[in-house]
Write a protein that binds this DNA or RNA. Structure first.
Length: 900
RNA sequence: GGGCAGUUAGCUCAGUUGGUAGAGCACCACGCUUACACCGUGGCUGUCAGAGGUUCGAGUCCUCUACUGCCCACCA
């Protein structure tokens, strides 16, 4: 095998080729052709001012991740579109890169540091830690991208970018300063999501709600100076009572009306706190009284704001109780919870405890419950950024595939809130803001190092300690990768891009931000189409996850089934926006398809193609029927595949190719071609070879976006023009077809299938049975001309085949098995072999079915409103059908009578 | 609590302008026909979740219901 493959390294046409192996071995073709494409620079587009480019910016995978099936799916999809456009001749750019992955990046290296040196990032210090992160990043940054090459990703690696590389660092500073100078960045103390695991603030989008079994504790708070009176509150988080500065009730709640404004005594702490009335409280829940902890609950924070309740922070950054927690200081929040509940019970304050299922907010990345707390952060005012981004969706400048995601996007954007962008991490883009200790002002600079305060000139300045949310640099990706803020040729030519292909779960985190930033910084949407793919699930339809242990490694699949099989399975098994399951049987099916094509090509090349031209002959009246049929079908295929890809329906397009190549080209055309291939007449042989080669070569071009390696390998084995299929022209969709030929060939197929079917059912030995065809008017010539095809495909070698015009049939054969098609009545004389009873039964059954069909047609056609209102063509078709069925019925009945 | 999907042959899924239900796998039978057993030929399998409506006609449009999944949401 290796010898065979290695010989054809350049793809030049060569004669005296070695025979192809019996089965397709993907690994060798894959490695060879990827290297070939890459070396030749096919993936790097040439800027041509006269042509409109096609651009897809790859969603940069996280450096910290391992290649998973999600990556395989997006590579399959994006690469298919990329290859399609490249073949169309568009200057095509698929720009790859990777993401520094803020929190995950930081924690990955933190864990490593702890594992190897038992040190924390704080111990080694910011600079040393960042040095370690960079070392790690440089080592692993391109691992996933390199693995994508095994999947055939035809991305332009010369433009590979990283969200933290120097050009991107500068772009981030310039962008942030612009926002800052425009007054869109502000600092405010609000309640934020604090992640006690990674010790940073995170945005609402990075919080994941998990349903948990917890408890609802009912605690009574004594009313001051009214011994024996209490207000009972219900809470899921008793430990936060240490920070309570009030209790709230609904103003309409009769139970508490007389108590509003009075003071309560906070148990254990003995702080006096007011009872306030606030509309946010639902009187029907719990006791109708809410303990209010403005420092640790978003709703309580709002209530606190309205009633001037003090904010008490009772937590340390790691979510242990701080000095404000008195005797509980130092305890972890969950330990403190137990202790406090016990103490409340001991003190007689605990009324009851109910099991309660509720949602607990978790930090997505760190996997621990977040702690809401009040902290000063940098925020981006989002309103003026969101408005144009909404407009772009309203007026269709950005389209969504499938369209329903447009609604998702709009709903979220219409309710968007300001964006907290600062993160208390080491790893990330430093926030380009400087604090001046001399004049107390802050300013932003796009320079990496700043010496003096912009306002007062003092050198007594310090940079902000925080870094930016990782999605800030991701949001700039569609233009930062093209060289922004410099006015590069790339930026001028390739922006705005064409397609953004990604997963629906990051519409808000990423897509929305790219659209906002694209409009703000570039004045144009970053892409005109957002294509959202579904999740890849395992065989049982379950989400793959490390903890479940059902993660499928795409590279293992590639090794087992081949890259093309994986790609084809993912593409044909998915519809936009719908989850796909990856099963072994479907993978095997795709692999078998590859093998089938391999062998079809092998068969054709084995016939000796040295002098065969690679062009598909145009349809001509004089061509043999089968040729006119397959060329017509191929033309339809090319047009349909093109249309479907343009409509982002890769799955349908792939299935069409599968059905055509296997079900029509291999099963019928190749089988039919064998006769002419064996012809002693060289012209006859060459004519059929040209069609075989032409259709297959064209189909390889149509299939290339789906199965790049196999198609290149086969294409190189066939007569072809050009050095690589990768840059071969996309077949021009031709609508030209010979409808008459298609109809005739189908009539022929019906008879062939009928004979096969009849023989199989009658369980008669295959080649000995004679057949008598009584051709209906207009079909005599067809069967006579295709006599040899009929004999071969119906398995009638060694048997007698009579073809008569229906009217000229000497006499209807008795003791014959028979069937009726639109083109003929066919008899298989089987005297002695035929079980008349069975045959009568079969005919009766068919007669019954025909009658039912006719009845149905009669009903439809008898319906006046159908005839009036349905389109003429539909009515005509129904009439035609009725007539045909009636004719068939008559013949079937005659046959039954003949049997006696 | 709101929203969005899915529910089609035993299994996995197609079915995009409404016009007589499809594929692969599995299963059964036959087959070493000079490309392929990762194959060929034939066969079997469906009240298109349920109910109602619009329409001459609905898997396809509308309403409701059920189950499954996802997204959004400050009920302590």
């Amino acid at each position: 095998m290796s010898e065979t493959i290695e010989k054809k390294e350049t793809g030049e046409k060569e004669s005296g080729k070695k025979e192809m192996e019996k089965a397709y071995i993907p690994a060798q073709a894959e490695a060879k052709w990827y290297a070939f494409w890459k070396e030749r620079g096919y993936f790097t587009p040439k800027i041509d001012p006269d042509k409109k480019p096609w651009v897809c910016i790859m969603p940069p995978p996280n450096v910290t991740g391992a290649l998973h099936t999600g990556h395989a799916l997006f590579v399959a999809i994006e690469d298919a579109f990329t290859r399609y456009h490249r073949m169309l001749g568009d200057p095509t750019l698929w720009l790859p890169g990777s993401d520094h992955a803020g929190i995950s990046g930081e924690t990955t290296v933190e864990k490593l540091l702890w594992k190897e040196e038992k040190k924390t990032k704080v111990e080694i210090g910011r600079d040393e830690f960042l040095k370690r992160v960079w070392e790690w990043m440089d080592k692993y940054r391109n691992v996933i991208l390199n693995q994508m090459e095994l999947l055939g990703a035809s991305a332009d690696w010369t433009r590979n970018a990283f969200t933290m590389d120097l050009p991107r660092q500068r772009a981030v500073r310039v962008a942030f300063k612009k926002l800052y100078d425009a007054g869109l960045v502000y600092r405010a103390a609000r309640i934020v999501n604090w992640c006690p695991g990674s010790l940073t603030v995170i945005s609402d989008l990075e919080v994941e709600m998990k349903e948990e079994q917890g408890f609802l504790w009912y605690i009574r708070y004594p009313v001051k100076d009214e011994p024996g009176r209490f207000v009972t509150v219900a809470t899921t988080r008793p430990e936060t009572m240490l920070g309570d500065t009030g209790v709230a009730v609904n103003p309409q709640d009769e139970r508490y009306k007389d108590l509003v404004g009075k003071l309560l005594i906070l148990p254990l702490v003995n702080r006096e706190i007011p009872l306030v009335a606030d509309d946010a409280v639902d009187a029907s829940f719990g006791t109708g009284a809410v303990k209010t902890t403005p420092g640790h609950d978003p709703l309580d924070f709002e209530i606190g704001q309205r009633h001037n309740l003090p904010i008490i922070n009772i937590m340390n950054p790691n979510a242990s109780i701080n000095e404000n927690g008195g005797p509980y200081a130092g305890l972890d929040r969950f330990v403190a919870r137990k202790r406090i509940v016990a103490d409340l019970e001991a003190g007689g304050f605990l009324v009851k405890t109910e099991p309660y299922t509720h949602n607990v907010p978790y930090s997505e990345k760190a996997g621990v419950p977040i702690e809401p707390l009040v902290k000063e952060q940098w925020w981006i005012k989002i309103g003026s950024l969101a408005a144009p981004a909404l407009q772009a969706a309203y007026d269709g400048r950005v389209k969504f595939v499938p369209e329903r995601f447009k609604k998702t996007y709009i709903d979220w954007m219409e309710n968007i809130r300001d964006w907290p962008v600062s993160r208390q991490l080491y790893w990330g883009h430093p926030i380009p803001i400087w604090w001046c200790d001399a004049c107390g002002s802050t300013f932003s600079s796009a320079e990496e190092a700043v010496a003096a305060c912009e306002k007062c000139g003092s050198s007594d300045i310090r940079p902000d300690a925080d870094v930016l949310d990782t999605w800030f640099s991701s949001g700039m990706w569609p233009f930062s990768t093209l060289g922004w803020p410099d006015q590069t040729d790339d930026l001028a030519y390739f922006y705005p891009g064409s397609l953004m292909e990604t997963a629906p779960d990051i519409i808000f985190l990423w897509v929305a931000r790219m659209i906002m930033f694209g409009l703000y910084f570039m004045g144009e949407v970053p892409f005109h189409t957002v294509y959202l793919h579904g999740l890849v699930r395992d065989e049982k339809g379950e989400k793959m996850s490390k903890t479940k242990g059902n993660v499928i490694d795409p590279l293992e699949i590639v090794a087992q089934y081949g890259s093309d099989a994986l790609r084809f399975t993912l593409l044909t098994g998915s519809t936009p926006g719908v989850d796909a399951k990856l099963s072994a049987t479907r993978l095997a099916d795709s692999r078998n398809f590859a093998n089938k094509l391999w062998n079809a090509t092998r068969f054709i090349t084995l016939s000796g193609l040295d002098d065969v031209r690679p062009t598909l002959p145009a349809l001509q009246a004089g061509m043999p029927l089968a040729d006119r049929w397959i060329v017509s079908r191929y033309n339809v295929l090319a047009a349909e595949v093109t249309r479907l890809i343009e409509n982002y329906q890769l799955g349908e397009a792939g299935r069409l190719l599968y059905d055509f190549l296997w079900g029509e080209f291999c099963d019928w055309y190749i089988e039919a071609s064998k006769l002419r291939l064996n012809s002693p007449d060289p012209a006859t042989k060459e004519a059929v070879q040209r069609v075989l080669v032409g259709v297959l070569e064209g189909s390889m071009r149509l299939l290339h976006p789906f199965m790049p390696f196999l198609t290149e390998e086969l294409w190189q084995n066939l007569p072809h023009e050009g050095e690589s299929l990768c840059i071969a022209p996309w077949p021009t969709p031709a609508v030209e077809q010979d409808a008459e030929a298609v109809k005739s060939f189908e009539a022929l197929q019906d008879v062939i299938k009928g004979i096969r079917n009849a023989k199989s059912e009658a369980k008669v030995e295959s080649k000995r049975v004679a057949a008598i065809i009584a051709a209906r008017p207009g079909f005599e010539a067809l069967f006579e001309t295709e006599r040899e095809t009929l004999i071969r495909l119906a398995g009638l070698e060694g048997a007698k085949l009579e073809i008569h015009a229906e009217a000229a049939l000497p006499e209807a054969p008795r003791q014959a098995l028979s069937f009726v098609t639109d083109g003929a009545t066919v008899y298989l004389p089987l005297a002695g072999l035929l079980d008349l009873e069975v045959e009568r039964g079969r005919l009766s059954k068919e007669i019954e079915e025909a009658r039912k069909e006719i009845e149905k047609s009669e009903r439809t056609l008898g319906n006046a409103s159908f005839v009036d209102r349905a389109p003429a063509a539909v009515v005509a078709k129904e009439r035609e059908k009725q007539l045909a069925t009636q004719e068939r019925l008559a013949k079937l009945e005659a046959r039954l009578a003949d049997l006696g």
